[in-house]
Design a protein around this nucleic acid. Structure first.
Lengths: 130, 130
DNA sequence: TCTTGAGACGTACAAATGTACGTGAGCCTA
DNA sequence: TAGGCTCACGTACATTTGTACGTCTCAAGA
């Protein structure tokens, strides 16, 4: 199915902003990014262009301003990216990653609780598969 | 401190195998990889070389065979990579990633159980920190 | 009307990445 | 000891990524 080329780090950074602020022109994305990054304006522009080429955004002119819109859900990209990471770094197993996240990055008691609830829930309506 | 260049996707795949099987020659890494990947033998070789250049592995000749050994713990690379991902994709929060992993990728009952045990344990001796 | 600033767009280019060929040396076997 | 196999290793090369310069156009103010 949707087998668009995956996003590079820089592209992802720009894409995230697009998801965050919705449809936006280069300037807006650039401004938003400049809090955390010091990418050049034209660099952002290039990324936006490439995002469109790769199928992660679409754009149209509004007057003489080109407005970019993220295409598809962030969830899709997240899934693809995480899957990729899990495959490459953990040989396809998610548990080690989860374990790493919990052990290494830590979680608040509240989060732990939340997670447990999730697991209970999941355990219930999970029945067969694998 | 250890500011070695980060690993590319392909390099990471090879690095993982090195961590997994320990010191190994190109052939072994290649064989191991061929279960999941169809990288060329010489491609693996190149990655191994680059891994060494970047400081993620060391090697020495054993007879006429070059044996590579991972340098440093996988944990370090994993941490860097995962942190990066979490920052970029989830604004620094791990829970959403964990949730994603569980919900989207699924887990076997056994894994769920394992995870719960881990959480219990973690809940207990978790006391301070953050 | 002339100037200027904002922005689009084409283009460039070095570095990193993915991929692999070819050559030459050591080793095993007929 | 000649042939073939296995490796190491140098090298190559297309693609992707990171980064940004110039140029052209439009629109608004002087």
């Amino acid at each position: 199915m949707s087998s668009r080329p995956s996003l590079s780090k820089g592209e992802m950074e720009v894409a995230r902003v697009l998801w965050e602020i919705g449809a936006a022109g280069v300037r807006e994305v650039f401004e938003t990014l400049s809090n955390t990054s010091d990418m050049d304006y034209t660099t952002v522009q290039t990324y936006l262009r490439r995002l469109e080429t790769k199928g992660y955004a679409s754009s149209k002119l509004k007057g003489r301003l080109r407005i970019y819109t993220a295409k598809g859900r962030p969830g899709t990209v997240i899934r693809e990216t995480v899957n990729d990471l899990v495959d490459r770094l953990f040989g396809g197993q998610s548990l080690p990653l989860v374990r790493h996240l919990i052990e290494d990055r830590g979680m608040s008691p509240k989060e732990i609780h939340e997670l447990k609830v999730l697991l209970d829930q999941y355990e219930d309506d999970d029945s067969c598969d694998d």
